[in-house]
């Protein structure tokens, strides 16, 4: 393993993040605050409790997931798309590094940034609502795994994208609906039966459910299934990336 290379990529990518740190934080913090005001305070005052938790608290895990997933994807996809776009990728391709090292550097940095933002949102949430985290270690575990797996997916999108429109298309058309329909703002059990069944094909449901369990101890699906789903998703992304580097798809002519 060329650990020096992994570290170099990671540090280089994080430096980009810290250069624009204020922008990086302001937008997620602002939008989360708005969600709390609109959903938590305005609408939430009419909804008493969901699964024994106040509505304001109930949406916290979903909101964190929403931001963390979008951030992971956009950070990682941009992180690898940018060198491709400006041509600096030649250096990665001609360096003595393998795909695992490149992925660890880029995905690691993208996941770290998303994790930062997740933590900031969690801290913001404490300003608006009262809640406790029942399983803090599981919470951190879920958060980290989510950051990594969606950063992997973002990495694939970044390599696939041929232009900036495509770079934004997948998150907009696929990820946002999946996350919104994944139970961020409601419990799956509140849906009509048909939609409950359909929801089980949405991988995000398992994530949010597992994450919410770590906060409140109750879940839509079993915790084991959640873990299994996220592990499967991560493996799938890794396999795709391995194939990309093996064949040089969209990166090597």
């Amino acid at each position: 393993m060329n650990w020096t290379a992994v570290k170099s990529i990671y540090v280089f990518e994080m430096a980009r993040f810290f250069r624009t740190i204020t922008q990086s934080f302001i937008s997620p913090v602002l939008s989360t605050s708005l969600y709390f005001v609109v959903f938590g305070a305005a609408i939430g005052s009419r909804i008493q409790e969901v699964e024994g938790v106040s509505y304001g608290a109930f949406i916290v895990p979903g909101l964190i997931m929403l931001s963390v997933i979008t951030q992971s994807i956009s950070n990682a996809s941009f992180g690898i798309y940018f060198p491709k776009f400006i041509g600096t990728i030649f250096e990665l391709l001609s360096a003595p590094v393998n795909f695992l090292e490149i992925v660890m550097g880029y995905v690691g940095a993208a996941a770290t940034k998303a994790l930062f933002i997740g933590v900031i949102i969690l801290a913001t949430a404490f300003l608006f609502v009262d809640f406790e985290i029942q399983h803090p270690f599981a919470m951190v575990g879920f958060l980290v795994l989510t950051c990594i797996s969606f950063a992997l997916m973002g990495f694939i999108i970044g390599i696939w994208a041929g232009n900036f429109e495509q770079l934004q298309l997948v998150p907009l058309l696929i990820i946002t609906p999946l996350v919104f329909l994944g139970g961020s703002f409601y419990s799956i059990s509140m849906l009509p039966p048909v939609w409950q069944i359909i929801s089980h094909f949405n991988p995000v449901v398992y994530l949010i459910s597992g994450f919410r369990w770590s906060f409140f101890g109750s879940a839509d699906v079993s915790i084991g299934l959640s873990l299994f789903a996220i592990a499967g998703f991560t493996t799938l992304c890794m396999a795709v990336i391995w194939w990309i580097f093996k064949t040089g798809w969209r990166i090597r002519q």
Partner: peptide, 27 residues
């Protein structure tokens, strides 16, 4: 390799990008 096209990250600092190259090669 010094490529024909000038491919550089516009917002990076000179010495950081040079150090990055060294690290990428595992040195």
């Amino acid at each position: 390799l010094v490529p024909q096209e000038i491919n550089l990250e516009p917002f990076e600092k000179v010495q950081n990008t040079v150090k990055f190259s060294r690290g990428l090669f595992g040195k």
